[in-house]
Every structure is written in C-alpha cells, then in structure tokens.
Design a protein around this nucleic acid. Structure first.
Lengths: 237, 237
DNA sequence: GCCCACTACGTACGGTGTACGTAACTAGGA
DNA sequence: TCCTAGTTACGTACACCGTACGTAGTGGGC
C-alpha cells in the first residue's frame, strides 16, 4: 500500500490542520482573503503564488503548504466570494427569493470582476457553495418539484447570470481601457461593423443593430432575462 | 496627429493584408487552424506563442505580425470553432431549429473542450459569430418578437449551454485524470460530502443527493434544460 | 526524551509573453 | 526606373511564472 499519489485530492477533503508539527501561521481564510485582495486590486493575472505570498507576508514556497496547486488557490477564492452571499429567511415566494439571489450574484460579480473567469467548474462543493445551495433549495421549498429540477434551475440561473455579467464586464472593460475617446472607439467599431453589415450578407443583424440605437438599459435587460428564466420553471412547476 | 496607440484595436477591424511589403506566409485561417490543433491535442495550456509558431513552422516572433497579443490568438480560435457550425435552411419551426443549434453547440464544445474556458467575452462579432447569429435570427423569423428579445434568447441559450457543458466536462475530467479507480474516488467524495452532509446542517442538499442515486442521464438533462428555456420564450412570445 | 511529521523558505529550472533590433523584401510614388 | 518606406521574418533578451527539491527548525505523540 504505497503512499497515495501526490496531488489530486479535492482541497476541501484535506484537513486544514493535522495536529502534528508547528502550528500553521495562517488559516485558509487568511489565504483566500489575501488572494481575493490581490485579484480585486490587480486583476486575476496579478494572482501569482509570489504576489499572494507577499500580500500574506510569507515566502513564496510556504504557500504550498496550504495550497498544493495554484488551481486550488482559485478554488479558495471562489469559495470566499461565495461566502459574501447574504442569506435570509425564505419568504415563501420562491420567485422573489430566486430573483434576489440572482441579483446578489450579479452584484458580487461586479465587485469581483475576475469571478466570471473562474466559474468554469461551477460548484465543486466547497463549504460556501454548500451553504449557498442549501439556501437556494430552502427558497425553492414552495415549488413543488423534485430536487433534481431545483438544482437544474439554480444551475441555469447561475449559467445565465455568469454569461450575462461576463458580457457586461467585457463591454465595460472595452470602453474603459481605451486610449482613445469613447467616440473614436465607437467610430472604429461602427466603421468595421457597419462596413460588414452594409454588405447585405447579414440583413437581420443589421436590422437588430438599427433597432436599438442609444445606450442599452443593462439593469432592465438583466431583470427581463431573470423573469424569462423563472417563467420557464413556473409554467411546468 | 501622432501614430495611433499601439495595440488595442479589435483584430477583425485590422485588415489581413495591407498591400505593402512581402506577402505574408500564412493566412489568419492557417494560424487559427494551427492553434486549434495545438489546443485539441495538448489542452488550452499548451497554446503558447512558441508552440503555435512551431506547429505553423515559423519563428515565435513572426506570429506577432499576425496576432498582436495572445488574447487575439484566442479570438481567432473561437472564431474558427464557430465556423464549424453547420447551418441550414430554417425549417419554419423555430423551437426545433434552436434546439438543433444548441445541440450542435454542445457537440462542438465536446470536440474542443477548451472552448468553455474562452467563452467569457462571448461574441466579439468575429466573422463566424456574425454568420452564426444571422442564422439564429433567421431561424427565429417565425417568432413574433423584437430583435432585442431574440438576441436575448440566443444569449441565454449560449450561456446555459456553455455552463452545462463546462460542468459536464469538469466531471468527466475529474474521473478521467484520476490515478485511483473510479470507485476509490467515489469513496473519497462520499466520505467528504457524506461527512459534511451527515452533520445535518444541509438537510436539503443531503436529500438531493440521496434522491438521485446511480449515474446521471446527461443527454436527458440537457434536453430538459433546453425545453425549459424554449418554453420561457414560447410563453410570452 | 526521542522521533518524525510538519512548517518555513531559499534556490533553481524550464517555461511563458513580448519589447526590441536587424535583415530581407516589395509595392507605390518620383 | 529606381528609391524609399512600410512590412515580414526572426533571434536575442528580460521579467515573470509555477513549482520540484533540499534544508533547517519546531513541537505533538509514543
């Protein structure tokens, strides 16, 4: 019975403290906080083992005592942000509760814009993910359906919110990080898109673009998306 | 009027050939194909400027003549995969057509598993994205709604499909890349999750897990998600 | 009290994106 | 027609990355 293969355990299954040897200087929460701070201030690309260790005040390689791979650091970060969800006593109106959950998720993702890039393997059952999911299920108690279906609802909601916010943030980033004025950028885009669309190969896209002139109501579009989604589950219960 | 700032143009707005100087040795399509091949064979992490250049058969820095930043290389890859969508004459049944579109997207993402990680800034209006969107809108002609709403439908569908496939692939990856047997892994997970859930803090999660024993019908769940989504738009048209 | 697992951390290696400089080439204007 | 300026091609170099490995010190279990 050789010693287990080196790495691939889920980090949440590994105990934070084993009882032997010196006391660890930091908790997992400390590390997550430091990593989140680095990401908030410098973007996800600033999250390197060196930077996080420096933020924490320890040597680079010491981090590896807590976090076997960088990927696990990401997992800690996602869990930490998940912990920012403020939960409440379910109201009895599952639509209202789920709307509130989704709105809160959107707010969290705006607060931590790097989150959309870490959402690929959604819900690895970290502690805060469990807490969050349990709360969602509690909110959905009034809905007469199997748990499988409720999980599906939560999954779809999260998928849509994530992709919505990702688009939202990408658009914001594009206009913010620009060395030229917004008008000039807009002109460039119009020149390109307009040029392509004027070709006549994509008449419906052209119509879609002329349909909505002026700034888009992002909040309204989000609400609308939400209602659609909730409709889908209200209908067939 | 100083020369424009260095980089941040959208790559699709930059002409592939300017007319001056020697003929480029490769086309954008060549580069996209090479990068996709590297990603398919070695995963997204294998996509480095060096590897792609080697696959292409040129020096590393020559790539930068075609692709100003690595991010643009990703954009080329996403566009190339978008080109794999096989389009058809709309049938007149928008639900059937959109179902087919979504199923095709899922197939593409299984063929190129790295795609789910590149979908954050969905649809930067690359050529094949335009082609794809125009096709979706054509399929939605029978649906009596504004283009804004149809775009919303396409966006939500893509968001859900992406997040669904991402979860699907993450689960598959987890069981595949394992040094231990699937049973042993399962045992570890059960030990962790079971341990947490047995605590009684998450009764609904525990119930959800006991509800569905045995393997999950991934195709069925996908279809189910799709129908939900289409229902939502059929309802309020 | 001893042992050994554990923490801490410096060094080092192979890899990354890309700024910069140089040489060859070719289309447009004289 | 030739010149020149913009482009392609690509090697070198730099700062930074994840992390394997070795060493030293610490403190709980036998």
């Amino acid at each position: 019975m050789a010693g287990r293969a080196a790495v691939p355990e889920v980090i949440w299954a590994r105990p934070e403290r084993t009882g032997r040897g010196p006391r660890p200087a930091y908790t997992r929460a400390d590390i997550a906080t430091a990593a989140v701070k680095v990401a908030d201030e410098g973007g996800l690309d600033a999250v390197s083992m060196r930077h996080v260790a420096a933020e924490l005040g320890c040597g680079t390689m010491s981090l590896y005592n807590y976090v076997p791979r960088k990927e696990d650091l990401y997992e800690l970060m996602v869990d930490a942000v998940g912990g920012e969800h403020e939960l409440w006593e379910p109201s009895g109106d599952w639509r209202a509760d789920m709307r509130r959950v989704a709105q809160q998720t959107r707010v969290l993702m705006h607060r931590h814009p790097w989150m959309t890039r870490l959402m690929s393997p959604v819900y690895g059952f970290s502690p805060n993910a469990l807490r969050y999911l349990e709360h969602c299920l509690a909110c959905l108690d009034p809905l007469d359906a199997r748990y499988g279906m409720k999980m599906q609802l939560v999954g779809m909601l999260n998928g849509c919110v994530t992709s919505y916010v990702a688009t939202e943030l990408a658009a914001a980033e594009r206009t913010r990080s620009l060395p030229w004025s917004a008008e000039e950028e807009s002109a460039v885009r119009v020149a390109y898109l307009g040029g392509v669309l004027a070709g006549g190969a994509y008449p419906r896209m052209a119509a879609a673009f002329t349909e909505t002139s002026g700034p888009i109501d992002l909040d309204g579009a989000f609400e609308s998306m939400l209602e659609r989604m909730l409709d889908a589950f209200a209908q067939r219960g």
